[in-house]
């Protein structure tokens, strides 16, 4: 996968995370302008996630694979209320699940990057 696409995916992931902050604390769902921006960011991001997962040439390590699975599951969780399969009261839980899983995924990606960086430094030292 081309590097600029990877960077774009990561940038959009960060933007999606940032635009979801007004939805915190838990119990206050994201709404209004921020939700619109979040959706606008999420629309290309969704297909980029798919592309990243399916067309990434390098085999993923466990942490990175877990990160992408968490992000993908987060995407899946928000689709459930979006297609009208949940009642309003339980929608809160699905939205929150989406948020926490996505944050977890982004966090794991960061961890994976940090681990890879450390590994590279160690290899260089050798």
């Amino acid at each position: 996968m081309k590097k600029w696409l990877s960077l774009l995916t990561l940038l959009l992931l960060l933007l999606a995370a940032l635009t979801s902050i007004p939805g915190l604390p838990p119990g206050v769902d994201l709404r209004g302008r921020w939700l619109q921006i979040h959706l606008i960011v999420a629309t290309p991001l969704a297909i980029l996630i798919v592309a990243w997962i399916w067309f990434h040439q390098v085999r993923l390590d466990l942490v990175k694979a877990s990160a992408w699975l968490a992000i993908s599951t987060g995407l899946g969780l928000i689709v459930i209320p979006m297609v009208g399969l949940t009642g309003t009261e339980s929608t809160h839980h699905w939205v929150q699940g989406h948020g926490w899983l996505s944050f977890l995924g982004v966090g794991l990606l960061g961890l994976s990057a940090a681990m890879a960086g450390r590994k590279k430094v160690t290899e260089l030292k050798r």
């Binding site: 798919v50 997962i53 992000i71 995407l75």
Partner: peptide
């Protein structure tokens, strides 16, 4: 979502 979860 389906593609991403299955890929993940």
């Amino acid at each position: 979502a389906i593609l991403a979860i299955s890929g993940g």
